[in-house]
Design a protein around this nucleic acid. Structure first.
Length: 548
DNA sequence: CTAGGGTTAG
């Protein structure tokens, strides 16, 4: 095309760039764009919108704005597609404040009339930074300014609410969309809600939605099925998981790499390593190449089960296959090695990740601090902590909590106490975990009175104890024979609708059995036992209907 | 020849 004179129509060039962009070959597309400019091909506004989109998708939004400047030079008037791409780029880079300023500037300077896509993009950005309330305000704002929201606008907010576990609000908005606005939900809206309900274990409602979809003749797609697979195998519902896969295949929908990764990860989290490995093998058999997520998930499964030799072999295999381990992979491996006491090997891998330019992040450092503490290397952990510098920004309290827990578990409660004092002096606020870990440490030392004082201080400090804190203190009372306090705490837990964890329950029952605790407590205790995981048959029956 | 929403890993 570049050798033809005159040049082919710009439409032909645009089609070419468009195809590359659709295939996500953004840099190639940009490369061609640059060549076109060098050849002085008369580019159009559409060409510019593609170039700008490519920059944005490559996280080079600043460059995209340079291209916008180039538009003015060429006397190309930027259109709403160009502005939307730029807005989306800012949001992709989490530059929400700049996005808002840009959005307002476009409106105030009448550079373009915001359309439903622009509003939806802005709403997506607000949701992304956790500003659901403002997002909902913008929803009514757009309505007032005569721009009708559509199913995408609503789905953006609904999904965000679901992710924040605000499922009731999501459901309310869903109803508003359907009944007040007459906008029909599509497969994406349903999938978001189903995922929301599933992740809260609310199977009944999830299945009702799935049924509703089927009733209106809408078929779940690959992503909907992947959502169901994710929910089922994370819960250990093996039969249901396999059922979903079978149904997918019957409907001619083939699992993709994400579906397999989801399966493998889900099984690994349940310790079902054989199932995970079987799925790993079958994805290879189906000609899907495992990626870094696949390997990291399976490897994490091995690490969590302390099968470090298998993990090492897999780590080797991924390197041989040319799949580059990333910070997640290394962190999993390091955690596993620490857990089996192979501190030297953990250290080697830590050095290696630096060598491969995979920089440890906050989670990695947390894993290492915990690993060092669990292997009685408190001093090393402390010096690493002091060397960490900026990396611990925003997570310093997390690191402190790990160290406090580690020190007191090693019997060095004096260090734990110093650390707790230190963080307070620095003006850091202990969170519920910090307090819980401290209370646990105090109880371990037999200082139940101090533990109780700290427990009471939590409420006053605006950081009320949670279910875990209660269980920790209760265990402290039980182990230190503070039986008078036990009953009171149980009543409080009942009042707060808290429940006993397995360890605390066992401790309670043992003490009752051995006569250390009064058996009249049994009635109260039974109220605090969490409901069994609901294995209602409804989901299974429903899956049968999906087949039809 | 145009744009925006849902699924996976430490």
């Amino acid at each position: 095309m570049s050798h033809m004179r005159p040049f082919p129509s710009i439409v032909k060039f645009n089609q070419l760039l468009h195809s590359l962009t659709k295939l996500k070959h953004f840099s190639h597309s940009l490369h061609l764009f640059k060549q076109m400019c060098a050849l002085r091909v008369p580019v159009s506004d559409y060409t510019m919108s593609i170039a700008i989109k490519c920059c944005c998708q490559l996280y080079r939004t600043n460059d995209a704005f340079s291209v916008l400047g180039f538009c003015f030079k060429l006397s190309i008037v930027p259109n709403v597609f160009i502005f939307n791409a730029l807005l989306d780029g800012l949001i992709l880079e989490d530059r929400i404040l700049e996005a808002e300023v840009f959005f307002k500037k476009l409106i105030n300077n009448k550079l373009c009339e915001p359309d439903v896509v622009m509003y939806s993009t802005m709403i997506k950005g607000l949701c992304k930074v956790g500003n659901n309330v403002i997002a909902i305000q913008m929803l009514s704002l757009m309505d007032e300014s005569g721009c009708k929201p559509n199913v995408v606008t609503y789905s953006n907010i609904i999904d965000s609410l679901c992710k924040d576990k605000m499922i009731e609000d999501a459901n309310k908005l869903f109803k508003e969309m359907v009944f007040k606005k007459g906008i029909s939900p599509d497969v994406i809206t349903y999938s978001s809600l189903i995922d929301g309900f599933c992740s809260l274990g609310r199977w009944e409602e999830a299945s009702k939605l799935l049924q509703e979809m089927l009733d209106v003749g809408m078929s779940p797609d690959l992503q909907t099925f992947t959502i169901l697979v994710n929910a089922f195998c994370k819960e250990g519902k093996v039969e249901e998981t396999e059922n979903v896969i079978d149904i997918m295949l019957e409907k001619g929908i083939l699992p993709d790499i994400v579906t397999y990764n989801t399966l493998i990860n889900g099984y690994c989290l349940r310790g079902e390593l054989n199932k995970a490995k079987t799925n790993f093998d079958s994805m290879v058999f189906r000609d899907l190449a495992p990626d870094v997520v696949t390997y990291s998930s399976l490897l994490n499964g091995y690490c969590k089960s302390l099968k470090m030799d298998d993990a090492m072999l897999l780590f080797q295999e991924m390197n041989e296959k040319g799949v580059k381990p990333d910070v997640v992979t290394y962190s999993s491996m390091i955690q596993g090695l620490f857990r089996v006491g192979r501190c030297g090997d953990a250290r080697k891998l830590f050095d290696k990740m630096h060598g491969k330019c995979q920089m440890p992040d906050q989670l990695t450092y947390g894993i290492i601090l915990e690993g060092l503490c669990n292997n009685h290397k408190i001093e090393e952990a402390l010096s690493l902590f002091h060397l960490m510098g900026d990396i611990k920004l925003n997570t310093e309290i997390v690191m402190y909590t790990i160290l406090i827990d580690g020190a007191s578990k090693c019997g060095k409660f004096d260090i734990a106490r110093l650390l707790f004092q230190d963080l307070t002096d620095k003006g850091l606020c202990p969170n519920v975990r910090t307090y819980s870990v401290m209370i646990s440490g105090l109880c371990r030392e037999g200082l139940v009175g101090d533990a109780k004082d700290l427990f009471l201080k939590m409420e006053a400090s605006g950081c009320p104890p949670n279910n875990v804190t209660y269980n920790i203190l209760l265990q402290g009372y039980l182990k230190n024979k503070h039986n008078d306090d036990v009953e009171m705490l149980l009543h409080e837990m009942d009042g707060r609708c808290y429940s006993l964890d397995a360890t605390t329950l066992e401790l309670l029952l043992n003490q009752i059995a051995s006569g250390l605790l009064d058996n009249t407590l049994l009635e109260l205790i039974s109220k605090l036992v969490p409901k069994e995981l609901m294995d209602g048959p409804s989901f299974t029956t429903l899956l049968e209907n999906v087949k039809k």
